[in-house]
Design a protein around this nucleic acid. Sequence first.
DNA 1: AAAGTACTTGCCAAGCAGGAAAGTACTGGC
DNA 2: GCCAGTACTTTCCTGCTTGGCAAGTACTTT
Lengths: 104, 104
Amino acid sequence: MTGVEPRFDDLIHAPTRLSLVSLLTAAEWADFKFLREQTGLSDSALSKQLTTLEDAGYIDIRKSFVGKRPRTSARLTPAGRQAFAAHVAALQQIVARSGLEVTP
Amino acid sequence: MTGVEPRFDDLIHAPTRLSLVSLLTAAEWADFKFLREQTGLSDSALSKQLTTLEDAGYIDIRKSFVGKRPRTSARLTPAGRQAFAAHVAALQQIVARSGLEVTP
DNA sequence: AAAGTACTTGCCAAGCAGGAAAGTACTGGC
DNA sequence: GCCAGTACTTTCCTGCTTGGCAAGTACTTT
């Protein structure tokens, strides 16, 4: 049992951010390049979405250096993880209502 | 096993249509008033969304009379049902990637 | 005749999203 | 030193979607 209160989150629901957040749930820190490749977003689109998620308090952004090159990484905050779980619960509720069988 | 090919469907993903379609999956024919109450949409918004879903081939719209009053009802077409199932499968794939536990 | 039911359609204004391109701040050859 | 490249960020702009509001349609009810 997860015990998360279902809560539909429009910010997370948008396709690009849904992928982004789900990628982040799996990892600890994920870096810009990885996220860009996985989502197929352009630099600018990804940058903006990350800012949006950061402003919402759903992710932390860390800027570090690997050798002498900058590296931007992101990870979910506890709030972000919680919001994602709550959103998934909300989706499950919607699906449950439909009577569709779920096989995890 | 459902055996449905996962296919993310932008048309179905939008929150209002997602609720709408999930409501329709549960029922056979659902009428306008019921859908409006369940979704909290305005007459015009609902009317437009139903047209959108009909144009996509996801629902059938039936206009009948109950006594002397008109009654508009909708139900999923097989294509709509299939698209919803495929979309849910796509969502499950996304959630599965996140490693979040699913309890149906 | 006026009001109500049951929608539908047109118009509009808001909001979001992404591409292109320029900007920033360095680093790395040549 | 200078030009190109990396790694983003920000701005500008365009397109798409949505919802509200208002008017229209076609009857029925009081």
